[in-house]
């Protein structure tokens, strides 16, 4: 089943067009990897999909269907809640670990202390961070290491129970061990969530994704099952990119 369908999507920053006529169907409860060289519009695609593009001074045109309804007919706050995003650079709030995770639930009306504790514990466990931080949930999130901060950000994105989780190169600033941690977590998360991950790391796309989309200069060149895209690419440009001829 497709949770998100894009039909001739164009995105702009001011007068500059970044995405050209993207047609893409995101499968529910699967991991979709978006690959492509720097500046090809991967991040813009994610920003478009949770309506953060406007916040960054851009705009999008085209048809998007989300959960069977017109994407642009939802209030943007609802889209942002239901389609979460984790940015490339870990960006914890300058609050305690606990408050980072209760920040959004409290906004959405969860006041019950027990319920909040439950959310914090369960999301930290999902993110594989619980054992490491349970001793002191009230220390500042800024004191965590880079990898821990990124896992906290993923846990934080999950606190509002999104249906889709967008990740923008979440591992680019992390070492191998932390990257492995996050990949493990994503594979587990894919049972309950739909995941779209932008990555520079082709091996990572191959390891964890079910579907792969290859973007080049703002156009979708190829989209299909990851196995097929990597073993028998249909487009010459995909083959060149995978073989490391450019990018």
């Amino acid at each position: 089943m497709n949770i998100l369908e894009l039909l001739s999507l164009n995105s702009y920053y001011g007068h500059e067009q970044v995405l050209y006529g993207i047609n893409l169907a995101i499968r529910k409860n699967a991991i979709t990897a978006v690959i492509g060289p720097s500046g090809c519009g991967k991040s813009t695609l994610l920003l478009t999909l949770n309506r953060m593009l406007e916040e960054c001074g851009g705009r999008a045109e085209g048809e998007i269907t989300f959960a069977g309804k017109d994407f642009f007919s939802y209030p943007k706050e609802e889209i942002r809640r239901r389609i979460g995003i984790v940015f490339q650079k870990p960006s914890p709030f300058p609050l305690s670990i606990y408050r980072n995770l209760t920040y959004a639930p409290v906004y959405y009306g969860v006041r019950d202390k027990k319920k909040l504790n439950e959310i914090v514990e369960s999301k930290l466990k999902v993110a594989g961070l619980y054992e490491e931080v349970q001793a002191d949930l009230h220390k500042s999130a800024l004191q965590l290491s880079g990898g821990q901060q990124q896992r906290l950000c993923i846990a934080r994105a999950l606190t509002v129970e999104p249906e889709i989780l967008l990740l923008d190169e979440p591992c680019s600033a992390l070492d191998i061990k932390n990257t492995a941690n996050i990949e493990q977590m994503l594979l587990k998360l894919a049972q309950d969530y739909t995941i779209v991950i932008v990555t520079h790391n082709l091996a990572q796309a191959k390891r964890i994704s079910d579907y792969t989309a290859f973007l080049l200069n703002g156009e979708l060149v190829e989209y299909g099952e990851t196995k097929k895209v990597f073993s028998r690419p249909q487009d010459r440009r995909t083959w060149e990119y995978i073989e490391g001829i450019y990018g």
């Binding site: 916040e55 609802e78 942002r80 960006s91 300058p94 959004a104 934080r156 994105a157 606190t159």
Partner: peptide, 15 residues
């Protein structure tokens, strides 16, 4: 104030 943290807050659908 950190722009990244601001963006993260808006990205949660928070006002």
């Amino acid at each position: 104030f950190s722009t990244a943290a601001l963006q993260s807050s808006y990205a949660l659908g928070v006002s």
